[in-house]
Amino acid sequence: MIEIKNLHANIEGKEILKGLTLTVNAGEVHAIMGPNGAGKSTLASILAGREEYEITEGEVTFEGADLLDLSTEERAHLGLFLAFQYPVEIPGVSNVNFLRTAINETREAKGEDPISAKEFMAMVREKSKIVELDSKLASRSVNEGFSGGEKKRNEIFQMAMLNPKLAVLDETDSGLDIDALRIVANGVNTLKSADNASIVITHYQRLLDYIVPDFVHVLHDGKIVKTGNKDLALELEEKGYDWIKEETQVG
């Protein structure tokens, strides 16, 4: 699905990623954990195509394409989805209208016909249920006046509508209470299939009680320094990140 090799990236001259390597296959859930400033959100931003970052070395192959060579929207058309840590409020742009445009642009890129109004509305009804998002919220302006939890649920709703191959969830658990966390996680689990994959970026183990990862990676100082199964997350929860830092320095 996606293969990241020896990725180095700078922002404003400061190196953030220092040789990150990661392979994710279809059907897998990977969690990326790490202390603040390790480069977790940078990774998410680079995958989605944020232009502020300069890639100095390495490559990323997604669905056979050179991902770094594609524009943000082309990545979306290929099936990449980023759930934002801070979803943007866009007054005056209705959630469903923009999603319809998004779906149709993706369909057009694939040479498919636009979605019919009937089919689209049926999809809105079906997918908003997954994250228990009020259909009124679905038709309101994008994220405007939404609570933190509603914004995150809206991210997963959009993910459900766009049906991506690879979803990158950037600290989707931040700012969520336990009920919202359960709803969001349940949404992600419902959407999981043998054909898609997700990268769950999180600081805390809490989310991984609900979204059970196949792999847990620890990102520290721009590199993946440790990989394990879900038990690694529990160990991190118990011991914090300092032992990883020490271990890395010794190594």
């Binding site: 989605a48 195509g49 944020r50 524009s71 943000t72 929207e73 990545r75 979306a76 058309h77 989805f81 980023l82 934002f84 979803p87 943007v88 866009i90 742009v93 923009f98 999603l99 445009t101 998004a102 779906i103 642009e105 993706t106 890129a109 994008v142 959009q158 766009l162």
Partner: peptide, 18 residues
């Protein structure tokens, strides 16, 4: 125009122009 909003919409598949 809010760059962050443009990026958000593009990340969902809208062209920069759209």
């Amino acid at each position: 125009l809010d760059d962050e909003a443009v990026f958000y919409l593009r990340s969902r598949g809208l062209s920069e122009k759209a």
